[in-house]
Design a protein around this nucleic acid. Structure first.
Lengths: 150, 150
DNA sequence: ACAATATGTTTAACATGTTCACCATTGTCA
DNA sequence: TGACAATGGTGAACATGTTAAACATATTGT
């Protein structure tokens, strides 16, 4: 069988771990997990409140995970939630003032560490790598090839 | 701040998810998680029993996670464990006959699906991507740059 | 209007990720 | 030899990944 560390999923996992090792300590100082930070960043990027489904898509979190994360962030008053008046099934989510302050407190150091990776690996090289990763992610492969003929 | 989906960790996460979507259903048919499969594969690749620390390194699992996974696999008789006579702290782990059979049952289809990715993305292109990922993973970045001068 | 269906979100259950603490066994060294 | 630190493994606690089910609200078709 294919050698172990030559597999694509393992290589992607290792590379990601290597990068995250640089960010996790910073986030830990502010009592945020990687996923919680992802949610806060996604909310920072928008002016309009977004519903949970949209937020899940933007952060690449599954709905059940996001649901727990939002409950946590709401308890800590980093976000605010309100029922969508046009569709009571949805809840509209936005950053609170404290949440926005938290993001402002972390962002500069986060950017700085990202730049460190960019510098060490090469900015243009990193850009090409991101392009390749994007192509790979959007490859659409048949999930069940044996049923492709239906 | 940096746009959200342009970040390296997100790109790596998406790419990996895209690839794993192809494998998870296959593993689920055999009641194995991705990580359990990783352990079985790692054990297949060696003739000698390995201790848990070595196995953790090869599968890129943290020790506490591996500990739980091994307990699970041992309950299902897919692996066997024995105390290392030379160092009673270590336990030596090997594939059981049933575990080896399980791997043989899954491997062909797994390889086939991997080949599908290789074909769709381009074999040489994938090889170059793996090289880049390896370089990225082995970049050693200072975890805490501000203390680098000590 | 009403029943059937679809959709957005949450809960449940189990497995893993992550950090910290603990335990047993080894290794070190005064 | 006998404290004492280092090492391998596990347990605990909390957060997330993952799938399936439950729930409430909307939508559809008749």
């Amino acid at each position: 069988m294919r050698p172990f560390d030559a597999s694509l999923p393992m290589a992607l996992l290792q590379a990601r771990e290597s990068a995250m090792r640089l960010f996790r300590p910073l986030l830990a100082e502010h009592d945020l997990t990687e996923q919680q930070w992802r949610v806060l960043r996604a909310l920072t990027a928008t002016d309009m409140p977004v519903d949970a489904g949209e937020l899940a898509a933007r952060t690449f979190l599954l709905a059940p995970s996001l649901s727990r994360i939002l409950a946590n962030l709401e308890d800590r008053d980093l976000i605010v939630r309100a029922v969508d008046p046009d569709d009571q099934r949805r809840s509209l989510i936005a950053l609170s003032a404290a949440g926005a302050a938290q993001v402002r407190a972390i962002a500069p150091e986060s950017e700085q560490r990202y730049t460190a990776i960019e510098t060490a690996f090469g900015a243009d090289r990193l850009a090409r790598l991101l392009d390749e990763l994007h192509d790979l992610a959007t490859l659409d492969l048949e999930a069940t090839p044996q049923e492709a003929s239906r």
